[in-house]
């Protein structure tokens, strides 16, 4: 891999670090497996691109607004679950399917190119820094700042309530915590992070696309799982660090796999490889023993 490729991997790694933080918040903290992200990632991209191209917005404002809209998407999913008792996974699927149509409306088509417009990244190029150098640095700073803010939030009274609501809802209620409200805000926040990631992704790759959300949930999960397996997460600080590290390592692994000619992988194989990796990791976590043993046991039981 060239330096150029490594820096590119860092860029996407940091962006998906945001998705991983969102997945950590929903899956680990709130115990709310949220699939909305498949729709809120392209939603963030679509909103940001449409505002910049069609609306002539300042790219920073457009990016911020994309995150707010993402919060709304997550809020709707959690509302379906909390208020109407729709199964969390189903609620997420319903919202992300709706978002597919909504995104097409927002962009007025299946994609929205961001060519020859100002983005948050062109600001640095205007200053004379080459994008491939400055972008990973900028994204790194943004993602780490958000991670530290999330760490701090989870240590506040509100954040602690959110952790209790996910870990022990009965105890949380008995301690005066409105568990439903915590889910609404927590799932909203996770999707705000994901939409922000989508907005940044669209700007760095020059287009928003209706299909760019496919597999985002698995990438987020893979990052959390990879990160946690290499960095034991005794504290929130370590856990969120592990999420970002996991996202970078995951992107690196994908880049290496696609680069290795002898594997004969196409770029389109990434989803399959990721899904299989996550499956293996989950199976491994469940049993704490090797896959070989599990398969053998499986046939014995038949």
């Amino acid at each position: 891999m060239s330096l150029y490729e490594i820096l590119g991997t860092l860029e996407t790694g940091f962006i998906f670090g945001l998705v991983a933080l969102g997945a950590y918040l929903t899956f680990k903290i709130l115990d709310f497996p949220d699939l909305t992200v498949e729709g809120s990632f392209p939603l963030g991209a679509a909103v940001c691109a449409a505002l910049i191209v069609q609306g002539g917005w300042n790219p920073w404002a457009a990016t911020g607004f994309a995150a707010v809209v993402g919060f709304g998407a997550g809020y709707v999913t959690a509302y379906l679950n909390v208020r109407f008792n729709i199964l969390h996974i189903l609620a997420g699927i319903l919202v992300s399917i709706s978002l597919y149509s909504i995104n097409l409306r927002i962009m007025g088509g299946p994609n929205e190119p961001l060519l020859n417009v100002k983005t948050v990244f062109t600001a640095f190029e205007d200053l004379g820094y080459p994008g491939y150098m400055i972008n990973p640095v900028f994204l790194g700073i943004v993602v780490i700042a958000i991670k530290l803010a999330l760490d701090a939030f989870l240590a506040t009274g509100w954040g602690m309530s959110m952790r209790a609501a996910g870990a022990n809802p009965a105890m949380a209620e008995a301690n005066g915590i409105n568990v439903g409200k915590m889910k609404l805000y927590g799932v909203g926040l996770a999707n705000a992070l994901t939409a922000l990631a989508g907005a940044l992704f669209a700007q760095i790759f020059g287009a928003a696309d209706a299909y760019m959300g496919i597999g985002v949930i698995i990438v987020g999960l893979a990052s959390v799982i990879v990160g946690m397996s290499i960095l034991p997460s005794r504290t929130i600080f370590l856990a969120t660090t592990a999420c970002i590290l996991g996202a970078i390592l995951y992107r690196l692994a994908v880049a290496v796999a696609l680069n290795a000619d002898f594997l004969g992988l196409y770029a389109s194989d990434v989803q399959l490889v990721t899904a299989v990796l996550v499956m293996l990791a989950l199976i491994g976590q469940q049993s704490g023993s090797s896959l070989f043993k599990i398969l053998k046991k499986g046939t014995k039981n038949d």
């Binding site: 240590a155 009274g157 954040g159 309530s161 301690n175």
Partner: peptide, 20 residues
């Protein structure tokens, strides 16, 4: 300590202050 912080929040409102 964090558990107690939650319990204190039962009778006094929680906020964006650090819980502990």
């Amino acid at each position: 300590l964090e558990n107690f912080a939650l319990a204190y929040g039962r009778t006094t409102p929680r906020g964006f202050k650090f819980a502990v």
